[in-house]
Design a protein around this nucleic acid. Sequence first.
DNA 1: ATGGCTTGCACCGCAAGA
Length: 265
Amino acid sequence: MNTSVFQLATWNVNSLKVRLPHVLQWLQTNPVDVLCLQELKLTDDKFPVAELRQAGYQSFFAGQKTYNGVAILVRDGNSVDATSLVANNPFYTDEQKRLLALTVNGVRVVCGYFPNGQAPDSEKFIYKLAWLEALHRWLEEELKHTTQLALLGDYNIAPEDRDVHDPAAWVGQNLVSPQERAHFSGLQNLGLIDVFRQFDQPEKSYSWWDYRMMGFRRNHGLRIDLILLTPSLAEHCTACTIDKTPRAWEQPSDHAPVIATVRPD
DNA sequence: ATGGCTTGCACCGCAAGA
């Protein structure tokens, strides 16, 4: 990594068209080097390249109509290898745009919008498990070529019960099922580290809150937006925080951004 | 209490999210 301080962030914006003002405002006070976005909900021709360019960011994206869509924004001054851009998992044929990889400052950045899974007895859950299995195989391959990899995104998995506001109420549901958590453990077994848990954190830290029933005000949330780093990056990670600020803004995304700071040497 | 918000798309309600 050829930089002194490197900040990476992830944010599920739930429509970039609606949330662009929030993204621009947030970047003004949080000028991270890399921002991974999920749920763009727009086609590539509608991506706000010019507005983000004006804000000092280069955009890489893979969108589709109505659903899904992921992007990686890179702040000017960082070193980007544009030929390293990969949309979707080469090991998995997928109509849905959920994965984007780009090498920035020598770090393999992977932005993911993991499937929701709907319910453990649904077709979408089957898809989620297959998608997770294929992700594992792809990352295993990527890790043969680099020691510096960052997987950021909306995992749609709450790793542990402490990442769930009411674990008892969530038993048997997607996002917390043993099958999904086993896949999460599989990613950890590749050496990837959930850096949020490397640091002391407030009790009941979440990154998503239901729009309904005053979920945010009551802190009824889940921690499902995560940053996993390989050991060589994680050992230089000095902070990982969830920024709840924009969740309290008017017309917010239901997710909050998560930021990791890496300081080599 | 199986709803409750929010978004996009296409209509005058729906699917999908988590």
